[in-house]
Design a protein around this nucleic acid. Sequence first.
DNA 1: TCAAATATTAATCATTTGATTAAAAGAATT
DNA 2: AATTCTTTTAATCAAATGATTAATATTTGA
Lengths: 210, 210
Amino acid sequence: MAKPNQIVTEQFTTEEKIKAAAKAVFYKKGFAATRTRDIAEEAGINLALLNYYFRSKQKLFELIMLETLTAFIEKMVLLLNDERTTLDQKVREVVENYIDVITAEPELPIFIITEIRSNPKLLLQKIPVKKIIRQSVFFKQHQKAVHEGRIQEPNPLHFLMNLIGMIVFPFMAKPLLMAGGGIEEKEFNELMKERKKLIPMWIKAIMKAK
Amino acid sequence: MAKPNQIVTEQFTTEEKIKAAAKAVFYKKGFAATRTRDIAEEAGINLALLNYYFRSKQKLFELIMLETLTAFIEKMVLLLNDERTTLDQKVREVVENYIDVITAEPELPIFIITEIRSNPKLLLQKIPVKKIIRQSVFFKQHQKAVHEGRIQEPNPLHFLMNLIGMIVFPFMAKPLLMAGGGIEEKEFNELMKERKKLIPMWIKAIMKAK
DNA sequence: TCAAATATTAATCATTTGATTAAAAGAATT
DNA sequence: AATTCTTTTAATCAAATGATTAATATTTGA
């Protein structure tokens, strides 16, 4: 039996173990630096099983990448299209949600960004990023706020760069930051937690700045 | 003769050609994805010459990485330790300088960050980042500004994260940004140029925010 | 001009690495 | 219990890759 859904004692199928291991290794080292043998070892399985279940390293990678991007973007789309929340609330929710997600999976930002860099066409053509942004409730609310003079800088790209950058950059620069600040993992996470309150406040200040 | 300093007609030595090629390829693809044959081809030289001049791929990489980090940090140290400039002026100069540098070499931020990730110990122990920050004039000016109530958030790490993040993040997310904004290289660079004026203004607003 | 030093090349090596194969083991079906 | 289908394993392959070698070409200095 391939997937023993009934059996409670056995926790994970081989397929699941491989996928989890692949995710961990790919996230940490990136596609190019990852050896299929690393994944097999991490999963505690025979190397051949990787190809048996997923055909190739490339296929396995694409699967994980697609799932990662989809999850990442789906949540964002949901938050940015809520008709019931204001722009300020959206900022708070995006900040809160993504700092939590990335704290749990700190390699995520670098992983996504480095892999998009190494193959921008393949990954970006699958997701209509432009459409997602320009047709969002967020986008309309931003336009309105600009029109009403509540936001000084009219270009929503600056707004997004600042928002996402403030959330994501510290995680990407984490080793540098820990060395530079002389702090440990625990203090780093404390800093990130602080930023959940700080970033929305800063974004407000930026909106008004001129 | 290895280095024909006198001869004006010959522009670059083999050694220089290899180094330039290695820099270009390493920056673009990272260490793991780079093949020594890619470098040889880019440099227009025989593969064996790479080892003849630089011993190994690893050694060549370390050389380039060290030069890159040194240049990157030396400039920063200089700017942040100028006794004659105020905090505001320092921010303006850091923003201006790094947006220029990175516009000319857009792969720099991802390169540095991904390679530090894959080998944090090796790279960070060579540079006393902590000392550089805590003993800087910038650090003292920041402390003073906090003490005098001109800056609300007392932790200088937040200040640095925001400043560097706002400068650097858009370049790292460039492909995503171009897809999302529906813009081309030229418009991207225009945006980055705008940010030279905007970021210092935003940083000021952030300082006062509470 | 000629010998020594330096630089360059083509061929080759030894490993690594992604992938396959054929056989064995295990589970499901009859 | 016998048969069939699925899963797992050990062994192996072929290509890629970092590095070396031995021979050749070029430059330098006496």
